[in-house]
């Protein structure tokens, strides 16, 4: 049964996660949800990279390296975003994105 799982299945999962994340980040009303959606995008892209690194790139495994970097950078991004959100939260006391429209 395992033989039936091809590259395209992985790619489909990657695409699905990416789209979920993308639309989630655009339409979500809760800031935490937006951040989670961005993480979803990250994971979808990483699945893509790993898949392509396994199936299409025999020599350098650049896809794996890229996904490792992206995981690290994504974590930092999430941390920074949370910190900024914390600073903003002190003033507004709300996690609704529509409250943050002072500018």
């Amino acid at each position: 049964m395992m033989n039936n799982i091809t590259m395209y299945h992985y790619l489909f999962i990657g695409l699905f996660m990416f789209l979920t994340g993308f639309f989630g980040s655009v339409f979500a009303k809760n800031i935490i949800k937006v951040l989670i959606s961005i993480e979803f995008m990250l994971l979808g892209i990483n699945i893509n990279f790993v898949t392509f690194g396994t199936y299409c790139d025999g020599l350098d495994f650049e896809g794996y390296i890229m996904s490792l970097f992206y995981i690290g950078i994504g974590a930092v991004e999430f941390a920074v975003a949370l910190y900024l959100f914390y600073l903003m939260f002190q003033k507004k006391d709300s996690d609704n994105i529509q409250k943050y429209t002072d500018l």
């Binding site: 790619l11 995008m41 892209i45 893509n48 392509f52 299409c56 896809g63 890229m66």
Partner: peptide, 15 residues
């Protein structure tokens, strides 16, 4: 979000 979109494009180009 935009760097996500960018990387998604990169992943397919890589493929």
């Amino acid at each position: 979000v935009s760097s996500g979109v960018f990387l998604f494009g990169v992943s397919y180009l890589y493929g």
